[in-house]
Design a protein around this nucleic acid. Structure first.
Lengths: 237, 237
DNA sequence: TGCAAATAGTGACTTATAGACACCTTGCTG
DNA sequence: CAGCAAGGTGTCTATAAGTCACTATTTGCA
């Protein structure tokens, strides 16, 4: 055993470390409402309850926290979500019966359609409407984490077009606006909304249309640029 | 050993957990420049280098992550900072020689004056100007974490008056404006700045003045309200 | 076939907010 | 008491957001 290894072992043993998990609040938009991906817990703490997808870091397979989240989400949905953002970490002595525990929570978005087939094959995961979820008794503090994520998305809806990641690749502006309205909790002015979208220059008109009982709406998709923010007020989110 | 304890032990052993630390980027404003609190590392990984104040969660004494940060900061500065906010968690296999490690990083602000006396007694901690720090070789990924914190504060300076927590309890608007200018990296319009402050209604005129070679400036202090945000655009930060 | 209903998208006025900058105010100093 | 230096304000302009009526394009049905 060389010195490096020795130190690694030595240092590790000095401290009793909290448990470390990641959890993801994965939102989507389907049938005019926001849905969250929940999984049924099959193991001890809070067994039988529904909770957020997530779990322990696999020290061998994962090289970053994001790897862990992506891996866990892929297990449930079959794909990696197009939008993933760290939300907040919650760590205290009480949140897990097993003792001191830290979770690094993420918010993710994806289109309902992109995992519809896969999720049907997974018995322990499903999309649930947010207003149903808020009445449920979830595992750990997952209800509170969903609340945080929801509030974060509300902010995004006000100033960015990040929520578009919860829609299929091609979508219409009325669709996007409605999603924003659901997130914000009030109706928006059509004109203002469109102006914002236009100024952001983050969407491209695909040229195609989709009809819905009236004049057909133009289909847009996101530019594959790095940041998806409406207000580039002075850079960054 | 009852069942609960047994399960606790059982579950804990199933997983090899990453190391968990907290780190704080504590800013202050002194002599017209931003400073960060750094500590000299006396232990193995990166021994001898400067790094952020922080350390391991003490499972006995701390009941939340914030407790850990507050405790660590109090050790170095003698007081708990008036502003503390979670910044971001960083976790990967490479950042610490000892192996997989997660740090929950915080941003904190306090007045230079409130710990001047105490910090003089602590040999391993000191305030360093940010532009000096950016040239240094810091422990772990602390340089990057400071960069994140700095960017976050820049955002705060644009839309809030949170940076005021880096000033003494009573301060003048020109002082606050200059701090914001340093954070943002460009000069601000006096009138616009004051308008924003006024609209926010988060400061109170103490009635006192402070002279500085010209007309004396009014001294303000923060209202002890909950949120310290300028733009209550639609609630929340 | 053509008219009404329904949904998409625009024009143009109003209102709110931020930027610019000249000007006034208040203290200090010689 | 003049004039400098720094604080603080009045007001015009520019830009972005809100409002709402109007136009546009489809479907469905008399």
């Amino acid at each position: 055993m060389d010195e490096k290894q020795f130190l690694a072992e030595y240092d590790k043993r000095q401290y009793d470390s909290p448990l470390v998990t990641v959890d993801a609040v994965m939102f989507t938009y389907h049938e005019e409402c926001l849905k969250v991906l929940l999984v049924g817990r099959s193991n001890h703490p809070d067994q039988g309850k529904w909770g957020l997808p997530g779990g322990f870091v696999d020290l061998e397979r994962d090289s970053t926290l994001e790897d862990t989240v992506r891996r866990k989400l892929k297990e449930k949905t079959g794909i990696e979500p197009p939008y993933l953002e760290q939300l907040q970490s919650i760590g205290n002595a009480k949140r897990d019966k097993r003792g001191w525990s830290v979770t690094i929570a993420y918010t993710a978005l994806m289109a309902y359609q992109s995992c519809e087939a896969h999720i049907a094959t997974v018995t322990d995961a499903q999309w649930l409407a947010l207003d149903v979820v808020s009445q449920m008794d979830l595992a750990f503090d997952h209800q509170a984490i969903i609340g945080l994520a929801r509030e974060r998305m509300r902010q995004k809806a006000l100033y960015s077009i990040v929520p578009a990641y919860a829609l299929p690749e091609a979508f219409t502006l009325p669709e996007l606006q409605h999603l924003h309205e659901v997130l914000i909790g009030k109706s928006l002015q059509k004109k203002s909304f469109r102006r914002r979208i236009e100024q952001a220059e983050l969407l491209i008109d695909t040229g195609e249309k989709r009809s819905e009982g009236g004049r057909p709406a133009a289909l847009y998709r996101m530019k594959q640029a790095s940041g998806a923010y409406t207000f580039v007020r002075n850079l960054e989110d």
